[in-house]
Simulated assay, not measured.
Amino acid sequence: MKTLVIYTHPNHQSLSYAFLQKVIQGSGENPNITEIKVLDLYEEGFNPVLIFNENKRRRDMHADPGLAKYREQMIWADKIVFVYPIWWGRPPAMLMGYIDQMFASGFAYKDKGGLLPEGLLKGKSVVCVSTMKGPAHYPLLWLNNAHKVLMKRALFNYVGIKKVKFFEFGNMESPKGRQEEKLNKIYRYFKTLDR
């Protein structure tokens, strides 16, 4: 199983970075994971800004040469892992900019003229590891599960990815947030993951 980890946080002293390290550590000890690549969007200097004009058209985004290496990473991966904080009930703008550009028509899906497109990323699976300051049930009770609906239904299912696992860790800035326990949960999950 080839695994691509997409990390989105500007601070390498953050708890999100500690979760990234546990994903890497557990994956490295898992015999089912043959290769792992990490894409740190901030360290990479990824430009999340969409630009469309007379020279750069939206319909050509699937073939943008500036995004070729990112498309190759996604094609290569069997499993895609996203590690990010939840800010204002959703992923950071940097990650959303990556998603806007990468999950383009002609690469991630193909319109068939009907209600739903053909997902072109079938067979892949996704894990989302996210942290937030608020309580763990805040997204479900206050935001009608907007984060999961956005990521699973509006994005991954749309492009053909049906197997999606979420870890939403709340109270992460609290001294009672059980950070070590949650970090170890991620380590164990990736160490024993079989598909």
Rank of each mutant, 00 (worst) to 15 (best):
K69E: 14
T34I: 13
E29W: 09
I80W: 02
L41T: 00
W76F: 05
P48L: 07
Y70G: 01
Y84T: 02
E54G: 02
E54Q: 12
D40S: 06
Y42K: 06
R57A: 10
K79C: 03
I51C: 10
F82Y: 15
A63V: 14
G26K: 03
F46S: 00
F46G: 01
A68C: 07
R71K: 14
Q73S: 12
F52K: 08
N30P: 03
L39P: 00
K37A: 13
Y70K: 02
I80C: 02
G28Q: 14
S27T: 14
D64S: 00
I36Q: 10
G45Q: 07
V49F: 09
F52S: 07
V81P: 00
N32I: 07
K69M: 13
I33T: 12
P85M: 09
G66E: 15
N53I: 10
I36T: 15
M61R: 04
N55R: 10
E72C: 08
D60W: 03
L67Y: 00
W76A: 04
K56T: 11
N30H: 10
L39V: 13
I36H: 05
N55L: 10
L39H: 04
I33V: 15
W76I: 12
F82L: 14
I51M: 13
V38H: 03
G45R: 03
I36R: 04
G66D: 15
V49Q: 12
R59E: 15
P48V: 02
E44M: 10
N55S: 13
L39K: 03
G28P: 04
L50K: 11
P31Y: 07
P48I: 02
K79D: 04
E43I: 05
E54L: 06
P31H: 09
A68W: 08
N30K: 08
I36D: 05
R71Q: 10
K37S: 12
V38D: 02
S27A: 15
V38I: 14
P31A: 10
G45A: 09
E29G: 05
E29N: 13
D78Q: 14
M74T: 11
I80M: 08
N55D: 14
K56F: 12
N30A: 12
R71I: 10
K37N: 13
K79G: 01
N32F: 15
G28R: 11
H62C: 03
G45P: 00
P31C: 09
N30D: 11
Y84D: 01
E29T: 10
R57W: 09
I51P: 00
V83H: 00
L67P: 00
R57E: 12
G45L: 06
I80R: 00
I80T: 03
F52D: 07
P65M: 02
M61K: 02
F82H: 06
V81M: 06
Y42Q: 06
F52E: 13
